[in-house]
Write a protein that binds this DNA or RNA. Structure first.
Lengths: 226, 226, 226, 226
DNA sequence: GATGAATGAGATTTCATTCAT
DNA sequence: GATGAATGAAATCTCATTCAT
């Protein structure tokens, strides 16, 4: 009923009991600590996503990570800071990967489409999509999280979108000039998909890719060839 | 720090002590009970929206409603059922009002615009908007709530949108035929606004009405005159 | 799941609504009150027996008796006194009936057998048997109840038994003279039956009458004819 | 008014602070936990006996055991399971000791007398006697407890008694053959004593040993020499 | 007299955090 | 560093008792 240790955690445990006399030199203390930390972070992410902040028990995180409850406090000050830090830890590498912009060759539509598809594939249908929902859910009670997310993700994202839109307008690919004022419109369907998946998928599955294409058709005009 | 009794609750209290300065002559027991129930519902809604389900304390709801803790249990079985019932109680009248369709005269765009503006005015910038965010936040842990919301709001809304879109396509107002498959696109910006308001408003205010107009321009083509 | 109003209670209720204009003169206020009181007593007895003192809810008693919770407080000071008074109210008439001794004609054995059979029939297999178990259960926490029960039932019972035993010894029906010091032995199997019924009947039914006969055979010597 | 920590608990506490004046050198964590568990069990037993299940407060158990309330939940799932487990924990060792049968040398009467005296000494006048009363009191609301008690104690006890009675009949020590059908009669006075002690001792003390001897005289015939 | 909505003290249970080992 | 038993504050929920109608 409650979460069980993952295979990784189990492995770590048996390893801890099996290799009694430290024959594994590579796995020194620091490395072990880092491993544990990573396990805690992953476990915490899963639990927070599944239950929300308040309903998540540190006990469950510890069990899932395969560590003792006290160990969590060696890595995080308390539950709140763990949550806030967690969001940062998960978001930062994603943002970093996305900011290595691929050079804007080809049409703007192609660019947007590739970008959005990647996003859908890598975010919408993964744990990270749920993280977005988690932030929406807990944001009001964690201004620090909302602020961080705004600064690191939303602001940059909006900026990037706007640049793309303006490029599209300049090149004549986009007719609706007002779009530059509201780049949010560009990503709206993506957010909708993320939310839809976690709330309504069992009632009516949603083909996010197809929806996205229709949306892009609206913006860029319908494609002659698909 | 914790919630205080609202003016309404205070009023009810002083009134109870004998001062009947308004035109309600005989506040019988049933009426009193109904009043209290309403106070509890309103208080609970505020608290749940502000803190989420798990972090809301019944103590605070009671205090805010101006009743004793035990009184809540005269009206609701437990915290969970209170939450679920609450969502129903708030949503039902909204849905009922919206289903009294105004006759579809004029252009589809006008219809959509009026409808969406009303929605933005009545939902997005009110407590009800936060309720939507609350449902997004708690839905995964309250399948009954998600189900209810899907059945009562989403399904009907999607159906209504689709009908409008098809009408628009038939009349030649909407060019993008794929839109009929994804009426979600039509409301996506509205949802975005709701979420934006509660998370990012202090960073960057969003003119939801203007964004909506741009979005409708995308769908219906730009207006000649504004 | 919880107790429902008995037929009597239902009758009283419908009667209360049905005979609106007091056409029933016999059922005046005082009579009504007495009726209610009786209903409360019966309901309370059932509930206390089924759940014990602490686990019994006044709510359930009221429901079962078909009265409002407040009404109970018109008849009893509080839950504790209700319990204590209840035991008295139920035991007194039983004791009164038993003290109208039938004249001691015939053999002592016959007397004891008739008496014990009557007791088994009227107490052991009825609600009153459970009352004995209830007193055993709650006695330590209700010294007043234990005292009353000792004074009214046990002491008299022991006295009566002793008189019978001495008569039996004098007449040569009973050989074991020590029995007069311990009349408890005479009733021990009856108490055993009462307890056995409520705890172990579903595991192994016990023929109390047969057991009693064997016990009397031990005391009076085996009968030549049965 | 409420229960106070026992001497044992107090001892454990002071010991915890460093004074180790006894021969237990290294009180490791597991041993400590076991100690606490034992303290909880003992405290709970006392409280349940004194007040019955429903009226016993976990707070008082904790105080008496000298632990925090939460600690109880490290050992028991909840109040109900604690009660059920408790009965098992106390009864099992008693049963185990009794099943190490002393070899049936000597007369059956001697055997029964030794056995019953032992029982009276070890059960009737100790906490364990009250446990029997507790089981009688709570049995109907704890079928699991009644079942366990029947299986482990009553059934075996009845079986053992029956074997003895049949031996007695075969050897000509017992005349009343019907007794083999109702071994309950053999133990009835013992149960009576247990109940009498806890309810009526202050009104009229009962010499259980003497009563037992009279009872055995009834069954085995009077002794020539005492 | 009768009602039953309201109360609030008090019970059980949970869980973040600490700390001796 | 790591552990996990222990803590106790705080949460949910119950229910005997009161009292305005």
């Amino acid at each position: 009923m409650t979460s069980k240790p993952t295979k990784a955690a189990a492995a770590r445990k048996s390893e801890a009991k099996g290799s009694a006399q430290d024959e594994v030199p590579a796995s020194n203390r620091a490395a072990r600590a880092a491993e544990r930390r990573a396990a805690i972070i992953e476990a915490a992410l899963e639990e927070f996503i599944a239950r929300g902040f308040a309903a998540t028990r540190l006990d469950d995180i510890a069990k899932r990570a395969g560590v003792a409850k006290g160990t969590i406090y060696l890595h995080f000050k308390d539950k709140e800071s763990m949550f806030e830090e967690l969001v940062r830890l998960v978001i930062v590498p994603v943002v970093e990967r996305l900011t290595k912009l691929p050079p804007p060759t080809g049409s703007v539509r192609d660019l947007v489409e590739v970008f959005a598809s990647t996003f859908l594939r890598e975010v919408a249908n993964t744990r990270r999509g749920d993280l977005v929902r988690l932030i929406v859910a807990e944001g009001p009670r964690f201004p620090a999280v909302a602020d961080f997310y705004y600064r690191e993700v939303v602001q940059r994202g909006i900026g990037g979108m706007r640049a793309l839109i303006e490029l599209g307008i300049a090149r004549g690919e986009i007719r609706e000039k007002g779009l530059a004022r509201f780049p949010q419109i560009l990503v709206a369907p993506v957010l909708i998909s993320v939310i839809w998946q976690s709330l309504f998928e069992r009632h009516a599955p949603l083909d996010a890719q197809a929806m996205l294409r229709v949306h892009l058709d609206l913006i860029f005009g319908e494609r002659r060839t698909t």
